[in-house]
Design a protein around this nucleic acid. Structure first.
Length: 799
RNA sequence: GGGCUCGUGGUUUAGUGGUUAUGACGUCUCCCUUACACGGAGAAGGUCGCCAGUUCGAAUCUGGCCGGGCCCACCA
């Protein structure tokens, strides 16, 4: 049957992905006997359309899924949608011009729900149009269906994991200095902090030595924190200050007496070499204060203003307090010098506000004491690329505090805790339901500690990563279908960006290890980024973003998918996204269609089977069959390692340069056999070879180009190529011909005709070629219209 | 400051010790030859970031430097 359409176009794609969706083609079959291959997809946020980077990585995941299906696996490939957390809350604040801190909780959650309702399903539609074969496009209870991270089902599992960890004694509450974002009004984990070079002032300030009255100069960027200064340090090697050992200093303005000590924490070449130790600090300051038995003073309130410890600065915002103090110092002649510097400042990864360090009670999940285990777990997953593992290992080694998991926000999973009203004893409910303690009565009747009947519900919620880190457990039905979880754990693949290794990957490995004592992922595929044509990060502000919908509208999915495979190795480098290059990939799609259309004129059914045909295969046929075998071998090996780039580059080259330009050109006349120049057997051999090579090409390209290969294969064979077995290499023949021999010969003849100003179909009076070509002389004579052919050392042509 | 990574014709990419460096996109010339003008034939274009070393021989190994990216860090 000849292919029905003249051209393949992007419009051809629509009927195919629509059919897949309506017939639930890729639904997960829980009764399948096949081994399950599961992909823990990264849920995109629903309130913004998907980014070109997500489009690309999901295309890769789809290639992985389709390849694994063809190698005999049942595929678990669900779509998750992230609806928890700050992005939703920030969208609500922006859209309804409210502040979380000024809005009643119930009301604020209602606004978040409005944002979520309005959030278009643009991202889901993009995935559909990209040809992604998710198990399902519907939300329901079936395995592999679409899930939302704010659903009662998901949130209850999050809470359940908390309850388990609580009972294992891994969760505790502590009053500590915390990373606090004044903008988001919440505590942050170290993993949520970015750093930015912000302009600030370096102030050289006079302190006095109590015993001698000597003036010493200390440099600082945070003068407003002098009120919390508990110690002055200098480096033990620093000759300039050795005489200060054992003495005390008097802080300016606040007149507090603090000890002076030698400590390697102070670097000689930094500032004046003297350093004031204040309890504003980060993790290391906490450690320093603890090691030196110092009492830390918190001088900054949650709202970013100074408190009573700051004396006359009380009530001022940090920035204003800083200015006010500087004015005071200047008036008293205590400010020696002020210089403008760029200071690396910790900022909130989401709101970009500078982080303050303030004290409050938070819940922590123990992780410090599991660092060795986590390093071991990190070795148990296979990383693609292997180098990416180091990012995880470095992070594990750098962890300095336990994971603060509580947040003071609203649209997130509630922490399932109540506190006894009379003795404050914390009460954890039973696993199972979805709890909302801030608006719900405690399900426990009496306090186990004091028998009290009144409880106060916990108001805090979980860090988003506490939710996100259970995604593989959720999709594998952890605690919902134990037999299924046991059989299909670990999850086959975690695909994700390298920038969230320290968050999503680490927290998932940690939490799932603490819960199950196992490594949850067999493979981890880490991807780099899609950047703009100039290698710059795409961003809204720079206006250099590329919308996947634009790409789909202009070219359709297949050129984009082929581009993704051809562009490079996303495990190792960023891709520069260029419309021109995506368009270029479209040429190969057309070429494949045209090759298929040509071959479809010679249906295999009229030719004999491989066995009967084998005796009549010419060296030319054997050469191309060998070529396609090589592709099968390489694709089988490399696809399994998540490398589509190298095989697909070879396949494209093969299609254009070997199959279309050399083989088809030479064999065309034999396939037509219009003047019966060839025997029926010789013709059948050509038709068999053409069809076989096409079938194999379609098969090995099916994961990459699911739509066009599906269409061609369905028209030719009436079957779904995606449920066929992945190709296996056929017979290897011994042939002396190489691609170079053939293209050199063809070029030689074509060029001779061209140089003589003659048409390519013009006849050749005499052609002398090496003996090597003797086995395929018949095809050569016919293809080039040769009147007389001779064999000799030197190639020669007469027209 | 440390770590990782990258630096190959206009753009992009492969190659990780061996004769004239791979392919793609783009460019130029000619050609509508019955699968394809999203095509065909031909051509131009690279001192493989810089410097030194190892070697008979380096884009490929070693060291240093320069530049880009990412990550980390107790620069107060």
């Amino acid at each position: 049957m000849v292919l029905s359409e003249k051209n393949w176009s992007k419009e051809s794609e629509t009927t195919i992905f629509t059919e897949w969706k309506t017939t639930k083609r890729y639904a997960f079959n829980p009764h399948s006997q096949k081994r399950v291959y599961s992909i823990d997809t990264p849920p995109p946020y629903v309130n913004t359309p998907i980014h070109i980077g997500q489009a690309t990585t999901y295309v890769f995941m789809d290639m992985f899924a389709r390849f694994q299906r063809m190698t005999g696996h049942e595929i678990l490939f669900p779509l998750g949608l992230d609806r928890n957390g700050l992005p939703i809350e920030m969208a609500a604040e922006k859209e309804f011009k409210v502040k979380l801190t000024d809005t009643p909780r119930e009301e604020f959650i209602a606004l978040c729900n409005k944002v979520l309702e309005k959030s278009s399903l643009a991202s889901v539609e993009s995935f559909l149009r990209l040809g992604i074969g998710f198990n399902s496009w519907e939300k329901n209870d079936e395995i592999g269906s679409v899930y939302e991270t704010d659903s009662p089902e998901y949130r209850s599992l999050t809470q359940e994991t908390f309850i388990d960890l609580w009972h294992k004694g891994l969760i505790y509450e502590d009053y500590r200095t915390n990373n606090w974002c004044p903008g988001c009004q919440t505590t942050l984990a170290d993993a949520e902090i970015d750093y930015s070079e912000l302009p600030s002032f370096f102030n050289d300030i006079k302190f006095k030595v109590k015993e001698t009255g000597e003036e010493i100069i200390i440099g600082t960027t945070r003068p407003e924190l002098i009120c919390t200064c508990e110690m002055i340090c200098y480096n033990p090697e620093d000759e300039r200050y050795k005489h200060l050992e054992g003495k005390n200093a008097v802080t300016p303005i606040f007149e507090k007496v603090v000890p002076i000590k030698a400590d390697p924490v102070a670097q000689m070449d930094k500032g004046t070499g003297l350093m004031m130790m204040c309890s504003f600090g980060d993790v290391t300051d906490i450690r320093f204060f603890r090691d030196n038995g110092l009492k830390s003073t918190i001088a900054i309130n949650k709202d970013g203003t100074m408190n009573e410890h700051a004396g006359f600065l009380k009530g001022l915002k940090v920035k204003d307090a800083q200015k006010a103090l500087i004015v005071q110092l200047q008036e008293k002649g205590l400010l020696v010098k002020q210089s403008r510097i760029k200071h690396r400042t910790p900022i909130c990864e989401r709101s970009k506000d500078p982080i303050e360090f303030i004290g409050m009670k938070e819940l922590y999940l123990k992780q410090l004491e599991y660092r060795e285990e986590m390093l071991r777990i990190a070795e148990q997953s296979h990383f693609y690329a292997p180098e990416s593992r180091k990012i995880l290992i470095d992070w594990i080694n750098s962890i300095a505090i336990d994971w603060p998991i509580s947040r003071r926000r609203y649209y997130a999973t509630e922490i399932p805790l109540w506190y006894c009203a009379s003795c404050n004893h914390p009460v954890v409910p039973k696993k199972g339901p979805y709890y909302r303690p801030w608006k719900q009565k405690c399900p426990i009747d009496a306090c186990p500690a004091c028998g009290g009947k009144e409880f106060i519900g916990e108001e805090r919620v979980f860090d988003t990563w506490f939710d996100s880190s259970i995604s593989p457990l959720y999709i594998l039905k952890y605690s919902r279908d134990d037999a299924f979880f046991k059989k299909n754990s670990p999850c086959s693949l975690r695909p994700q960006g390298k920038e969230i290794i320290r968050t999503w990957l680490y927290y998932t490995l940690l939490k799932d290890y603490l819960l199950t004592e196992k490594c949850i992922f067999k493979d981890v595929w880490i991807n780099y980024h899609i950047v703009d044509e100039n290698g710059k990060k795409m961003s809204k502000s720079a206006g250099n973003g590329i919308d996947p919908q634009d790409v789909l509208n202009r070219f359709g999915a297949e050129p984009f998918r082929l581009w993704a495979a051809l562009e490079g190795n996303l495990e190792r480098t960023d891709f520069r996204c260029s419309m021109e290059r995506i368009e270029g990939a479209g040429k190969t799609i057309s070429k494949l269609w045209n090759v298929a259309k040509f071959i479809s004129m010679f249906p295999k059914s009229t030719a004999a089977s491989e066995k009967s045909v084998e005796a009549h295969l010419t060296d030319l046929d054997k050469w191309i069959l060998n070529g396609v075998n090589q592709l099968v071998i390489k694709a089988t090996e490399q696809y399994a390692r998540y490398d589509f780039h190298n095989p697909v580059v070879d396949i494209r080259h093969f299609i254009w340069e070997e199959f279309a330009s050399q083989y088809i050109e030479l064999v065309k006349n034999r396939a037509y056999n219009q003047n019966n120049e060839f025997t029926k057997e010789q013709q059948d051999a050509a038709i068999y070879t053409l069809n076989h090579v096409l079938d194999v090409l379609l098969n090995i390209m099916a994961p990459v180009l699911p739509l066009i290969t599906y269409r061609i294969y369905h028209e030719l064979h009436g079957k779904d190529i995606h449920f066929e077995q992945f190709a296996t290499p056929g017979t290897h023949y011994t042939v002396n011909l190489t691609i170079d021999d053939l293209s050199a010969l063809n070029s030689f003849i074509w060029k001779a005709k061209k140089d003589a100003g003659k048409s390519l179909k013009e006849e050749v009076t005499l052609l002398v070629i090496p003996e090597l070509f003797k086995p395929i002389q018949h095809d050569i004579i016919s293809a080039h219209n040769i009147k007389k052919l001779e064999f000799g050392q030197e190639k020669r042509i007469e027209l």
